[in-house]
């Protein structure tokens, strides 16, 4: 759903609400495909939308779709969280998502996380691949982006993404064939 342009999203609360409602499910599912803890998922959801607020003015239509741009933002937030956890550093958060969770919110988040179980297995299976290959495969095979959208999310050209995808498919086949995942 690309009709909500990021323009003004960082400075206009009404524009932000339209963008948020249009993309909330997309963002939470993206995160649920990568983390299995409702509290962390809530924190990251808040972080992604804060990053959207911070960077909305940098979006340029000629660089790709809103979806591609949004997934790029979300991917960076998740990657930063992983780096931080790897170094055992606590995040300084402007909005702590988990504090907004009640029992109902936790249950909702757990439903999403359960629903994305198969996708998380694929993400985990890709862990050993080179970072650029993994990022591309995740966005296309796991998140369902088109090659053009994935290219925009990663800041590369469609041609480069297509070539990378072609190479990666062979690698992916080797990775997932021993334990196929049916979705």
């Amino acid at each position: 759903m690309d009709e909500v342009h990021p323009k003004d999203v960082g400075t206009d609360a009404d524009a932000f609400e339209r963008f948020y409602r249009a993309h909330y499910e997309r963002v939470t599912r993206f995160i649920a495909r990568r983390v299995d803890d409702p509290c962390t998922a809530a924190d990251l959801t808040a972080e992604v939308f804060l990053a959207v607020v911070d960077t909305a003015h940098t979006y340029r239509p000629r660089k790709g779709t809103v979806t591609g741009w949004l997934y790029g933002v979300a991917r960076n937030v998740v990657a930063e969280e992983r780096r931080r956890r790897g170094r055992d550093l606590a995040a300084v958060r402007r909005i702590t998502g988990r504090r907004l969770l009640d029992a109902e919110g936790v249950a909702r988040m757990e439903e999403r996380i359960d629903a994305e179980h198969a996708a998380r297995r694929i993400v985990a299976a890709l862990d050993g691949l080179p970072e650029k290959t993994r990022a591309l495969l995740e966005l296309i095979a796991v998140d369902g982006l088109t090659v053009a959208e994935a290219a925009a999310a990663l800041g590369v050209t469609r041609v480069a993404a297509s070539v990378r995808l072609h190479r990666a498919r062979k690698t992916l086949a080797a990775v997932v064939e021993p334990e196929p995942v049916y979705v």
């Binding site: 609360a13 932000f16 609400e17 939308f49």
Partner: peptide, 15 residues
């Protein structure tokens, strides 16, 4: 989804 609405309020305050 109460979380969705609470987060929206917090983010709109930020904006």
């Amino acid at each position: 989804d109460p979380f969705k609405e609470r987060l929206l309020v917090a983010l709109k305050e930020e904006v």
